[in-house]
């Protein structure tokens, strides 16, 4: 293969990925029911914990809403990232992926499109959630640099969960099964963590799990960064977990994608 051909192929491949990213981004606002649902749920959770449960929870961050923000944010991002599994399962059932496979393109570009779409939606969602948080009394003290680190964490965490969601979407037999599959994974990880309450009061085995699982590291890192507290090893552990999940899940998703359709 001469270099001009390689260049042309790379150009086309980047173009294909871009076309499919645009498609997924269009889904965000064309399918506004979904966006609305994904945004309203964490807002309801925030109001629930802020005003109903919050008063009874003792934390060391001054007000409870300061403690809560990072937890709500990470849980919202995790559920938002599950959209990739819906999108991929839907494309598979409807035959859109089959059609794309008969085009002269790299068919995995469709997965890239959905994962990137999630990233854009989650960015939007994070902005809305933090703004809502400030409305109900959240007082961040993060510097500009710290906000940038928080943004990087949001991106990496979203990518990690989206690629896991891609695997679930490829494994699911029906679109319906995707929803409980995602719930089964995200629900325990987001509640058995330091998202809503300090882990100190949990029974020993649960506490060990809660303090060492990736969600807690991401939550604690964001919490410390927003409130100007020492980050400890949480930031590094969060980065290691996110990169680790991304590096392992991309090849698995790629393998499952190629295998699909009896090839």
């Amino acid at each position: 293969m001469n270099s001009q051909l390689v260049y042309k192929k790379a150009y086309w491949m980047a173009g294909d990925v871009w076309v499919l990213i645009v498609r997924s981004i269009k889904h965000i606002y064309k399918n506004y029911d979904q966006l609305l649902g994904l945004t309203i749920q964490p807002i309801m959770f925030m109001l629930l914990f802020r005003y109903v449960f919050g008063g009874a929870i003792v934390v060391d961050t001054g007000t409870y809403v300061n403690f809560l923000m990072a937890g709500i944010l990470v849980q919202g991002l995790a559920f938002g990232s599950l959209t990739t599994s819906f999108s991929i399962a839907t494309d598979l059932q409807r035959g859109i992926i089959d059609r794309l496979k008969t085009l002269p393109i790299a068919s995995w570009a469709v997965m890239m499109g959905h994962v990137t779409g999630d990233l854009v939606r989650n960015g939007l969602q994070a902005f809305i959630l933090i703004s809502m948080g400030i409305l109900v009394g959240f007082q961040p003290t993060a510097s500009a640099l710290e906000w940038i680190v928080i943004a990087v964490l949001i991106v990496l965490f979203t990518l990690a969960i989206s690629w896991i969601a891609a695997i679930m979407g490829l494994l699911a037999k029906t679109i319906e099964s995707v929803s409980w599959l995602g719930f089964l994974v995200i629900f325990p990880l987001s509640f058995a963590s330091s998202a809503f309450v300090p882990t100190e009061t949990m029974p020993a085995p649960l506490r060990v799990f809660a303090e060492n699982q990736p969600f807690t590291h991401v939550i604690e890192a964001i919490r410390a960064l927003t409130l100007n507290r020492p980050v400890g090893n949480h930031l590094w552990m969060a980065l290691v977990w996110c990169f680790g999940i991304i590096l392992v899940s991309i090849p698995i998703a790629g393998y499952l994608f190629r295998r699909h359709g009896g090839r």
């Binding site: 269009k26 889904h27 399918n31 409807r94 035959g95 859109i96 089959d98 059609r99 008969t102 085009l103």
Partner: peptide
């Protein structure tokens, strides 16, 4: 793939 078009049961359009 460059020579064919495919329509039917298992090929679909994007409904959004």
């Amino acid at each position: 793939r460059r020579s064919i078009g495919l329509t039917g049961q298992f090929a679909d359009v994007d409904e959004y």
